[in-house]
Structure formats: structure tokens, C-alpha cells
Design a protein around this nucleic acid. Structure first.
Length: 352
DNA sequence: ACAATACCTCGTGT
DNA sequence: AACACGAGGTATT
């Protein structure tokens, strides 16, 4: 199948919904390390997998455009009829009401961002200053299993490598959904795909290092315990309870648990504290918290500090600052965060 | 409770 | 060219 870049080429295959820019900045949200499965397939177009389907998204002024690719047959080289414009026909067009529901849920569009920005800015001048250049940064509502297993991979790691690892994970263990410009696109693996006896060894072969045991171990623990549904039901549990349960899983500590709570389990108050946030808390906010290292107590105190500052959506506010910091570190070539911080400049184009 | 260390790999930087 | 360093942490002393 061919990648779709712009609605004008095949208007019939695209739909849109009204989303003001202040509510969403697609590029910032999809490239800021919340999720590792979207790539900029061509300038302004973002392609990825959501709810078992392959999508391309594009934002233009007040509209979010989307198109969903049809699933391919197993072996047939999927060559549907073409109409006069060379656009595929025949394939059932996706139910746009359902597609729109999925997008609204994923981007949590019912949460009004401008009002939150105003409140955070009123409480925190530093936020106001930084956020001015980064509107539209929101927290995604991700699949809990994908979010959990993905963030287990983030420990002692950097984004470019995490992205590559997740890609290999999906390629090796995930169901193939279709080809886009000859490139196979895979779903995120199901729990059961990762519970085989050889899963750990295979993950190691894929370069997961010591995380191989954590990923396979947590997949197994969930499969044999809560189940994917049980994990999802933690959305209805209190933050502390969800966090406690997550921390029992191998490879899941306070940081990863908070990431999952925030990005998959509806805990808007969860503030994932990493070395990065810790540094910001100390330098920028002059907070005197914890000791000289990131102990569990320090995690708690720093989280409480930001919750006290920003309120019940503290995790969302932190996502804005994190995103801003990530971008700031990329633009000036001169100094600052010089290391491997070019983050997700994964220019994975369509065809080789 | 806190501090120190090992843990896999793979970019970078000397 | 070989080698050290450390990166969105976690588990174990």
C-alpha cells in the first residue's frame, strides 16, 4: 500500500475533526517521548499504529485530518482496484464515527488545555514563560500494556535507542498489519506473544540487554495475574493503588509506574520523576527535596511539590515542560544538553 | 532510610 | 583504533 501524505491526493480516504491549535500540537505530542510508535512519514504527516489500525494524521489550522489504512490479506499482494485518481477503492471505508471516537479518546480531547495552561501559568510564572512557546502539549491516553512494556525499556536508556528497540519488538512479536511503501507495519505485541519460554532470549537477541528479563517477566506476570483487562481496570483505582500494583512488576520502579499511571491509567496527578525532572526541581525551582540521590522519598517529595504547585493535573503540566526542554536542547547547536539528545529525529521515510 | 553498584547496548567523545 | 562514559532506572546489597 502507498503511504498517504496529504488529504488532497485522495480526499475520499480522509476525514477530519475540529481541533484548535491551542488544544493540540500534533508534532510536539507525538515526538516528545510519550509514545514511541509514531513517525513523521513526510513533513507534517504522522504515521503510526493505534487500536490495531495503521493511521496517518495531519494537522492543518483548526482541523486534525486522519486516514486509516485497510488491513492486508496474508499473502495476496493487496492490489485493490484503482479509481481515476489512482486512489484505492473497494476496501470498506472505516466507520468515521468510530475513528473519531478513537482519536478523541487517545488525545483526550475532552480535556480543555487552554484553561489548564492558564491555571498552571497563574500558579507558576516559570511555567508561563516556558509554555508560551509550546502550546498544545497534552498527555496521550495510551494502551496500558503497550505503555507499561515500552516504559520498562526506558530505564538507563535514551530515546533514540528506545524507539529502535520498540520497533524491533513489534516487528518480532507483533501481528503484521500491512505494508506501507513496502515497509511492514506491525501491531504492538499482545501479552501472550511475549509469554513464551524463549521470549527473554529473543529479546536479548534484539538488543534489549537486561531489560529482556523485565519485559518478558512483566508480560508473564500480567498475563498470569491481572490480565490485560485487570491492568486496564486500574484506570478506576486510586493513584496510590495503581502505583503500588505496578511497582510489584519486574523492571517497574517508581518512575516507570508513574509514567504508566499518567499516560495510560488516567492518573493526571502522577508526576514521573526522573533525573531530568529532579534536576529541574532543584535548579529551576530551588526546591530542597530529598537528599543527594533519587530515593523513593525524594520521588514522593518532588511529586508532592509539583502537585502542590500545579494542582490535580500536575503530570500534564510536567509533560509541557519536559517537551519544551527536549526541544530547547535540540535547537541551539552551541551548548547545553550536548550528548545524545537529538531524541527522535528518526527520519524513517517510506521506502528504502 | 540512604548510598553504592551492577546491569545490556550503543552513540559519542578522547 | 581502542576505551571510557553515560543515557528518561531498577534491583540488590
Amino acid at each position: 500500500m502507498k503511504l498517504r501524505d496529504v488529504p488532497s491526493a485522495c480526499p475520499r480516504l480522509w476525514r477530519s475533526l475540529r481541533v484548535p491549535p491551542a488544544e493540540l500540537r500534533l508534532d510536539l505530542v507525538l515526538s516528545s517521548g510519550q509514545t514511541f510508535r509514531w513517525w513523521e512519514s513526510s513533513p507534517g504527516a504522522w504515521t503510526g499504529v493505534l487500536e490495531g489500525r495503521v493511521w496517518t494524521l495531519r494537522q492543518e489550522r483548526d482541523r486534525l485530518w486522519y486516514t486509516v489504512y485497510e488491513e492486508e490479506e496474508e499473502d495476496g499482494d493487496a492490489c485493490p482496484e484503482k479509481d481515476g485518481d489512482g486512489c484505492p477503492t473497494g476496501a470498506a471505508e472505516p466507520d468515521s464515527a468510530e475513528m473519531e471516537r478513537i482519536l478523541r479518546d487517545y488525545f483526550q480531547l475532552d480535556v480543555g488545555l487552554p484553561a489548564l495552561y492558564r491555571a498552571w501559568g497563574a500558579a507558576d510564572p516559570r511555567f508561563r514563560k516556558v509554555a508560551k512557546d509550546f502550546p498544545g502539549v497534552r498527555v496521550l491516553r495510551q494502551d496500558p500494556v503497550e505503555c507499561l512494556l515500552s516504559f520498562i525499556c526506558t530505564s538507563n536508556n535514551h530515546i533514540s535507542r528506545i524507539t529502535a528497540m520498540i520497533e524491533r519488538l513489534c516487528c518480532a512479536f507483533g501481528r503484521r498489519l500491512c505494508h506501507l511503501n513496502a515497509r511492514p507495519i506491525h501491531a504492538f505485541p499482545s501479552l501472550s506473544a511475549l509469554t513464551g519460554a524463549d521470549a527473554e532470549a529473543r529479546l536479548r537477541a534484539l538488543g534489549f540487554g537486561y531489560r529482556a528479563k523485565f519485559v518478558s517477566g512483566s508480560a508473564r506476570a500480567i498475563a498470569e495475574g491481572l490480565g490485560a483487562e485487570g491492568l486496564c481496570q486500574l484506570r478506576a483505582a486510586p493513584y496510590a493503588e495503581a502505583r503500588r500494583v505496578l511497582c510489584t512488576l519486574p523492571g517497574v520502579g517508581t518512575k516507570v509506574a508513574d509514567c504508566v499511571c499518567l499516560m495510560a491509567l488516567d492518573k493526571a496527578e502522577a508526576v514521573p520523576v526522573d533525573t531530568h525532572v529532579w534536576r529541574i526541581a532543584q535548579q529551576r525551582y530551588g526546591a530542597v527535596l530529598g537528599g543527594r540521590s533519587l530515593t523513593p522519598r525524594a520521588h514522593q517529595e518532588i511529586g508532592d511539590f509539583f502537585r502542590g504547585l500545579w494542582g490535580p493535573h500536575a503530570g500534564w503540566a510536567q509533560a509541557v515542560l519536559f517537551c519544551a526542554d527536549l526541544r530547547k536542547g535540540q535547537e541551539p547547536r552551541s551548548r547545553g544538553r550536548a550528548k545524545g539528545c537529538r531524541g527522535q529525529d528518526s527520519h524513517r521515510d517510506g521506502a528504502p
